[in-house]
Each structure stands twice: as structure tokens, then as C-alpha cells.
Amino acid sequence: MDLKDWLARCPLVAILRGVRPAEVEAIGEALIAEGIAVIEVPLNSPDPLDSIGRLARRCGDRALVGAGTVLDPADCARIAEAGGRLVVTPHADPDVVRAAKAAGMLAVPGFFTPGEAFALLKAGADGLKLFPAEAASPAVLKALLAVLPKGTPILPVGGIEPGNMAPWRAAGAAGFGIGSAIYRPGDDAPTVAAKARALQGALAGA
């Protein structure tokens, strides 16, 4: 499936920053049970490739599993080898996008300006991460979508929680990357499940 197919299943990307390999499978199962279909393990988490591998083996085709905070193009091959199928960056680096695509993965790089967005799409990005969303607004997103190629999926990331999703969706957000509103280090699987339910409820209302 391509990125749009996964986002059609659920437009929320669970960002598990700080998750540990020993807990990641239970948390992944809790997320899937609540309908979350895209799970990202940032590379600045403990043993992230181990966590990605465990999730990929456990979840199979039930979820799109990948890595976030990918800064080095060389990491893309290692992520793919671990079983990851998604690369997310915090910054606009076309080299990481090209490396992710060469490794057969989906790429959702971070951007903040129209120039960055067009350069990343030219490099092969499957979607774009508007980051940090706290420094932008739904009006900014709407203006960007007016000039980018029709159908470009943009996911605001940063500060997204149940109370502020509706205006972003109305402006055209294809989905959201959700960090602390869905997982903080130390959260157990039931806690993550409860957060996911709250987000899903807010999404339905949006």
C-alpha cells in the first residue's frame, strides 16, 4: 500500500519517542487494537532498530512500521534491514528521501517552507511533515496546499492533541504525527490505548 492507503485506514501516526524494545510489542498491539495503523520509532529512542524489528515482525501487514528522526541517509538501509517500511525526518534533506526510496521505503520528510516542500517532492517524497506545527497554523497549511501538487499529503506534527485537530483537518491535513499525546516514556499499553481512543474520538469529531 502507498502512504495514502495507510492514512485512509487511520490518519494518525503514533510517534513512540523513547520507547524501549521490551515494551514496544505490547504498545504496538494496543495501538493496532485502537485502529492506529502507522507506528514510528524515532532513532533517538533506546535501541530503536531492535524496537522497529520487533514491531515489524509482530505487526506484519497490520501496521506500517518505520523510523523517525532519521538524519543520516546511511541509516535508511539499516532501517529497511530491520523491517521498517517508513522513514520520517525532522528536516528537509532530499538525500535522506532518495536513500529511503532506494531502500524501498516510504518517505515523509519534514519541511516548513514552500521551497523545501517542492525540493522534497522532487526527490521522491511520498508525503510531507509540516514541522513544527506549533510555529505554523491551519491558514499556513491551506496556503501551502493551494500551490503544491494536488493530492500532496501533508501531516502537521508538533503540539497536536485532541483539542486542536479540527481546524487542521478543515484546512486539509491528510493526517497527524502524534507524539506525547499518544505516548510518553513510561506509559504502559493501557495508558497508550486510552490516549489513542481519545484521539480517535477527536478525529471523528473533526
Rank of each mutant, 00 (worst) to 15 (best):
P109W: 08
G110P: 09
G110W: 11
G110M: 08
F111C: 08
F111G: 01
F112D: 05
T113L: 09
P114V: 04
E116H: 03
E116V: 09
E116C: 03
A117Q: 06
F118T: 03
A119I: 01
A119D: 02
L120M: 10
K122N: 02
K122H: 08
K122S: 10
A123R: 12
G124E: 03
A125T: 05
A125S: 08
G127H: 06
G127P: 03
L128N: 01
K129N: 04
L130M: 14
F131D: 04
E134T: 14
E134R: 14
A135I: 12
A136S: 06
S137T: 14
S137M: 13
P138M: 05
P138W: 12
A139F: 02
V140P: 00
V140F: 15
L141P: 03
L141N: 06
L144G: 00
L145Q: 13
A146K: 07
L148M: 08
L148Q: 03
P149I: 08
T152Y: 11
T152V: 07
P153C: 02
I154K: 00
L155R: 01
L155H: 02
P156C: 10
G159L: 11
I160A: 02
I160W: 10
E161I: 10
G163M: 14
N164Q: 12
N164R: 12
M165A: 08
M165K: 11
M165L: 15
M165E: 04
P167D: 05
P167K: 10
W168N: 13
R169Q: 09
A171C: 09
A171L: 09
A173I: 10
A173D: 06
A173Y: 10
G175K: 04
F176H: 13
G177V: 01
I178E: 00
I178W: 01
I178S: 00
I178D: 00
G179T: 08
S180C: 04
A181R: 08
A181D: 11
I182V: 14
Y183G: 04
R184E: 11
R184T: 14
P185E: 11
G186N: 09
G186K: 11
D187R: 10
D187K: 08
A189D: 13
A189C: 13
T191C: 08
A193V: 13
A194V: 00
A194H: 01
A194Y: 00
K195V: 02
K195Q: 12
A196T: 09
R197D: 09
R197P: 07
A198W: 01
L199R: 06
G201R: 10
L203I: 03
L203E: 00
